[in-house]
């Protein structure tokens, strides 16, 4: 029965990561979640350094043999979260890069177009250059 707990936690964790991947991009709430996650990570890390037996106690509580095993599971989940957030950020960055490159292309095209419109005028009114 105890084994169920860690299985439940891990499965829910993995599904959450999957849903997070498919969710439309959220801006600031996304950043806030990352920061909360980091804060929790730091607190848990300090706690487990100061009270190593605490980790084993928690592990036993949710059906994992040793604290080290629990650490490994947590690491796997954290890695999945990392992969998911990195992928999303990569997509967002590429999106911006595309828009930037398109603006450059269109701006250059507009310059060329206006140049080709004005060129005939230069031919007819050469005295413009004399001013």
């Amino acid at each position: 029965m105890n084994v169920m707990w860690i299985q439940l936690l891990l499965v829910v964790g993995v599904i959450t990561v999957g849903l997070f991947l498919a969710r439309p991009t959220g801006g600031d709430s996304h950043l806030a979640l990352r920061r909360l996650f980091m804060a929790a990570f730091v607190i848990v890390a300090i706690l487990s350094i100061l009270f190593p037996q605490w980790l084993s106690w928690l592990a036993n509580l949710i059906g994992v043999g040793r604290g080290a095993d629990l650490l490994l599971y947590a690491l796997v989940l954290a890695f999945l979260v990392f992969v998911a957030t990195t992928y999303r950020r990569n997509v967002a960055t590429n999106r911006k890069l595309t828009l930037l490159a398109r603006q450059i292309t269109l701006a250059q095209a507009a310059t060329e177009d206006s140049a080709s419109i004005h060129r005939p005028h230069e031919g007819t009114s050469n005295d413009d250059a004399a001013h």
Partner: peptide, 26 residues
């Protein structure tokens, strides 16, 4: 042809969208 140049390779979908925006803009 009138050639527009992407400064870097973006992909065919991006190229189409650039073309649409150019043509529609004119």
């Amino acid at each position: 042809a009138r050639v527009l140049r992407h400064p870097i390779n973006l992909g065919q979908g991006a190229a189409l969208q650039t073309g649409f925006e150019y043509v529609v803009g004119r």
